[in-house]
Write a protein that binds this DNA or RNA. Structure first.
Length: 657
RNA sequence: GCUGUUGUAGCUCAGUCGGUAGAGCAUCGCAUUCGUAAUGCGAGGGUCGGAGGUUCGAAUCCUCUCAACAGCACCA
């Protein structure tokens, strides 16, 4: 601070613009002044500036030579500012309307912003209209945002004195080096790091309060529950409408709704968090499972099947009983007791790794046996918190397309690379092209096990594997598992949502705990490295994702009913039965609809349940041995000879190789 | 688990100030045999998530409980 003030005394400042041009000023200069120098149009459009990559207020003085870009409403950064400003405006509106409400934090988030308030009485959606109206008024006032730097202790005292205890707490927890800045908009002000737009008017009108929800102070469930208002905000009405439309679209695609409509599965109270797969849903499940099974066989995996229920000693040895015991389903074995007379405890497996180590541990393994790639469609139980459940996406009983690769440290990188290839191939086959790769690095020292050398080695190996596979990736410090780093694959669906599915995790620890070893070239025992990996993650969740991605219109090879044969009138019943028989003989999942209903009615019904092909047969077809095929999403008919039609659907419904 | 909301026929939903429930679709029956997104008429079906309570009387009020939904927290 002090040095900056000294520099500001009047030494010239050179500003470099994005196009490489430079501008010279005699002394400190604001972003606005820079924009004015470039042109009056830009000065008018300017909202903020980016100084050496950091976003700052338009009116803040730039005191040293810098790279500067003027931010206008068109830039991505502007959207973030609009949302953050809107959060301030909402907070002002709320405090004006509901005196006694304390403000806490209100950041911009994906698609909008929220603000957490402390108030005895939570807000309801009925308050929204009033709040929105007041927000529009505040925006119309177009009060400039004015930044002030406050003395730390005074700021704490001040916020305490006006009853804003949370703000005071935030300030006292800020590092000593941090400047305490306050932004004013008219009479209202808020502690804030900034930056902000020049004035409230720039927020515009394209915002909408969305929902209220509880949220813990500082995200910690031991703290007080605040009341959070979520809102969405955009540059203009068109963007807002597009977003609202996307939400509607997401609602239409909801797998819970489609699952019911398409008769795929159901959930009920007597088996909370467990899926009842109906015939049609399980058809999808089986198609997906066999596809994965073919893929892993081709990739030289073995497939195993291990028990559900284990004596607690195994999970105590693996460490899960202590670390995740609260989230395990535990069962008393009434027929067995421990030395102290207590009934023995058993547990449903929450993951497959300890069981796979048991298979590995049978007999003696040589370095020549490695790598061993052991896969299982492993059914796991985890007692998830009640609030975590969501349709079939988050459940208490699920099946992982799991595998563990036992290998030597030298083989690890190669194994990781092989997995990446397999993984990306599968996503492509399933219709996902946009994949983000992340590398989650070691968590804090007290939240991880193993030496730093081991972590260095494991993280580097994954980094190298990703690089040699040519995969761009983002590093996430602190996000790794307690036993090792992990690579995460996030896929983007048809309406732009991302889902974390596949992961590869390095685990140098479990083999140790469960005493897995192999005999090396040197004749001595060594610990293998264990790679945990899943491609889909959970079958249940992935099928949910597929349903939503395709809006129920699954590709032919995954569709539960691939074709339905239906008649114009009963005259064609016998022929329709024959068509069905041929379809089934050819291995097609087919159904028949001989109801005495108009063809319009039947077409409508099968279209609504997203059957990919409707094979209509009437008098004409039965005489000519043909079928009239109508495909989902099209109104056209294709008339084909029956045998040609069968051949065609067999070819087209073949799963990806 | 926490905060808030919800829970009525197979599905989607209505039910005013407490007086033992209604619609559409679906189902069943009858008629219709009609070429590519809903043929007509008729009938059956629920005790209102569960338990307890208040009351002459509760789907409607109270308590507890279960589940779902939204968000938070969690996700080995």
């Amino acid at each position: 601070m002090k040095t900056a003030a000294k520099d500001a005394a009047g030494s010239p400042v050179t500003i470099t613009l994005p196009d490489g041009k430079t501008l010279s000023f005699d002394g400190p200069v604001t972003g606005l002044a820079i924009a004015e120098k470039i042109g009056p149009g830009l000065a008018k459009a300017a909202l903020a500036v980016k100084q050496d990559g950091e976003l700052i207020d338009l009116m803040r003085e730039i005191k040293k030579d810098s790279q500067v870009a003027i931010v206008t409403r068109k830039d991505a950064e502007a959207l973030e500012l609009i949302r953050h400003d809107a959060a301030h405006v909402m907070a002002e509106a709320v405090q004006e309307l509901f005196p006694g409400t304390q403000v806490t934090i209100g950041p911009s988030i994906e698609n909008g912003f929220y603000y957490d308030f402390a108030r005895e009485q939570p807000f309801t959606t009925e308050d929204f209209e009033k709040i929105e109206k007041r927000m529009h008024e505040i925006i119309a006032r177009n009060e400039p945002f004015i930044r002030e730097v406050w003395n730390r202790d005074e700021a704490i005292r001040h916020f305490k004195s006006i009853g804003e205890d949370y703000k005071a707490e935030i300030i006292s927890d800020l590092p000593e080096t941090e400047e305490i800045s306050v932004y004013k908009q008219g009479k209202w002000y808020d502690l804030c790091r900034g930056p902000h737009l020049p004035a409230t008017g720039h927020v515009g009108k394209a915002f909408k309060l969305m929902k209220v929800a509880g949220a813990y102070w500082r995200g910690d469930s031991n703290n007080a529950m605040l009341t959070r208002i979520y809102a969405t905000a955009w540059r203009d009405q068109k963007e807002l409408d597009a977003y609202l439309h996307m939400l509607e679209e997401a609602e239409k695609r909801d797998h819970r709704k489609l699952g019911k409509e398409m008769d795929l599965f159901h959930l009920q109270e007597e088996a909370v968090g467990a899926v009842f797969w109906h015939d049609k849903g399980y058809a999808i499940y089986r198609a997906l499972e066999s596809y994965i099974r073919r893929k892993i066989r081709a990739a030289d995996y073995q497939e195993v099947k291990t028990p559900q229920l284990f004596d607690s000693s195994l999970f105590k040895a693996s460490g899960h009983w202590d670390i995740y015991g609260d989230n395990m389903f535990k069962v008393r074995d009434v027929h067995k007791s421990d030395a102290d007379g207590e009934e023995r405890m058993m547990g449903l497996k929450p993951m497959n790794c300890p069981a796979h180590v048991q298979i590995f541990n049978q007999g003696i393994k040589s370095y020549r046996d490695l790598p061993i790639r052991m896969a299982e469609f492993g059914c796991c139980h985890r007692n998830e918190p009640s609030g975590a459940m969501h349709g079939i996406m988050r459940v208490r009983q699920f099946t992982q397309d799991d595998a563990h690769i036992f290998c030597t440290p030298e083989q690890m990188q190669e194994e990781a690379a092989r997995y990446f290839k397999l993984q990306l191939g599968v996503y492509k086959d399933l219709g996902f092209d946009k994949i983000d790769v992340k590398l989650a690095l070691r968590p804090g020292a007290n939240a991880r096990i193993g030496s730093d050398e081991l972590w260095d080695w494991a993280e580097n190996a994954l980094r190298e594997a990703l690089k040699s596979a040519g995969l761009p990736f983002e590093e996430l410090p602190g996000e790794g598992a307690f036993y090792g780093p992990k690579v995460e694959f996030h896929l983007t669906d048809a309406i732009g949502r991302t889902w974390q599915c596949g992961t590869l995790q390095v685990d140098p620890n479990l083999p140790n705990r469960l005493d897995a070893s192999y005999i090396g070239e040197d004749g001595a025992k060594h610990r293998p490295i264990m790679l945990h990996r899943a491609i889909l993650g959970s079958m249940e969740r992935f099928i949910g994702i597929l349903i939503e991605n395709y809006a129920g219109k699954l590709p032919l090879w995954l569709a539960p009913v691939q074709a339905v044969v239906t008649t114009i009138t009963n005259d064609a019943d016998t022929y329709a039965e024959r068509v069905l028989k041929d379809l089934k003989k050819a291995g097609i999942r087919a159904a028949i609809d001989l109801r005495n209903e108009k063809i319009n009615y039947k077409i409508r019904e099968h279209s609504l349940t997203k059957t990919p092909e409707i094979w209509v047969v009437g008098k004409r077809e039965s005489e000519e041995n043909t079928v009239a095929i109508r495909r989902l999403g099209s109104e056209k008919q294709e008339i084909l000879a029956l045998s040609d039609a069968i051949n065609k659907i067999v070819t087209e419904s073949a799963p990806p190789a």
